[in-house]
């Protein structure tokens, strides 16, 4: 154990130290090669200009390199692989996409993904909005919010253990130790194997993501609600609007942009959902979604990179509109500066 801790310590030191070393070293070298400090003569001025041309790339270099290797290169590579056979050697045109189109498992995954998309973002945003409005008026609202927020810090695997325990099933007659079945039997129902119920099991998996993400929606929406100028609400009361009218006509329109951001953020997350399905059901009982299907084709049963890559491209194309929207938002923000 001690050896392991020491090893870990030195590994950490090496990784972090190397990174610091690069930035200090490269900048030191630049200042050293083109000195411009004490004197004010023409060469110092020239060296300063050379420094100013080189230094941005010293700062940006590692980031650009890592982004290229870890994100840009894989995107290009995946596009390439999706037009090739299982080993990635032979060009097969659109065959992988054609296969996907007629594959039952792929259709099922698309269906499940759409189901997730229809339910999770809406439910999270709605719950988040309700909780944000309710807790806004409580003195212990912040405590309440952080408790609802808490699952966001828990890993998907951890959450899966928690929820497997909730959904746990014991044979009829035995005492149920999963709370859901305990409640069902208490009211006289029959215990169920929840995560193996076809179709409905999707919703039991979605519950986990809703449980995790509602806190996110709550926090963002609560901040937006607090940003609404109070005088608009007061003016509406004076104008004779009731609480529900104030909520729907005055508050919601003012935080509409935020609601959209929350919705799209969770939508992107849902499109990439993977861990929950992997750890809860491992795609059994018809719960497969696109990311899991892709993972299975890539890493299981010998692997078919072409088909896996085609599924990856499908996911990316689905994410693309949101990507464009994101870039637009960022540009608009920049112009606002």
């Amino acid at each position: 154990m001690t050896a392991q801790i020491l090893y870990a310590f030195f590994t950490v030191l090496l990784g972090v130290g190397g990174c610091f070393g690069y930035f200090y070293g490269s900048n030191w070298l630049l200042d050293r090669t083109f000195p411009a400090n004490a004197n004010n003569d023409a060469s110092a001025v020239r060296n300063l200009r050379i420094q100013a041309n080189i230094r941005p790339w010293l700062f940006l270099g590692p980031a650009l390199l890592l982004l290229s290797v870890y994100l840009i290169f894989p995107v290009i590579q995946t596009v390439y692989l999706s037009f090739h056979d299982r080993a990635g050697d032979k060009y097969v045109g659109l065959a992988n996409y054609k296969w996907a189109f007629y594959d039952d498992q792929f259709r099922l995954s698309i269906f499940n993904n759409i189901l997730w998309l229809a339910v999770v973002p809406a439910l999270c945003t709605l719950m988040g909005l309700i909780i944000a409005v309710l807790t806004d008026r409580l003195w212990w609202g912040n405590l309440a919010k952080s408790l609802i927020f808490m699952p966001l810090a828990i890993s998907f695997v951890g959450a899966s253990v928690i929820w497997k325990f909730v959904y746990d099933y014991r044979g009829e007659g035995q005492q149920q130790i999963g709370i859901l079945n305990a409640i069902v039997t208490y009211f006289g129902g029959d215990p169920q194997v929840w995560i193996a119920l076809p179709f409905w099991n999707n919703f039991f998996l979605m519950a986990i993501l809703v449980w995790i993400q509602t806190g996110f929606a709550t926090v963002i929406l609560a901040a937006a609600l607090r940003g609404i100028p109070e005088d608009t609400l007061e003016a509406a009361t004076i104008d004779g609007a009731g609480p529900f009218k104030i909520f729907f006509r005055i508050m919601v329109p003012q935080i509409y942009g935020t609601i959209l951001v929350v919705w799209t953020t969770i939508t992107v997350l849902v499109l990439k959902i993977f861990d929950i399905v992997l750890t809860m059901t491992n795609s059994q009982w018809d719960t497969s979604v696109l990311a899991n299907l892709m993972f299975d084709w890539m890493f299981r049963g010998g692997g078919d990179f072409g088909r896996g890559a085609a599924i990856a491209i499908v996911i990316m194309v689905a994410v693309l509109p949101i990507m464009i929207w994101n870039i637009r938002q960022a540009n608009a923000e920049q112009k606002g500066h």
């Binding site: 004010n40 110092a44 001025v45 300063l48 200009r49 100013a52």
Partner: peptide
């Protein structure tokens, strides 16, 4: 014209 701020005194 081409001297950076810190070198202009």
């Amino acid at each position: 014209n081409d001297v950076p701020p810190s070198k202009r005194g």
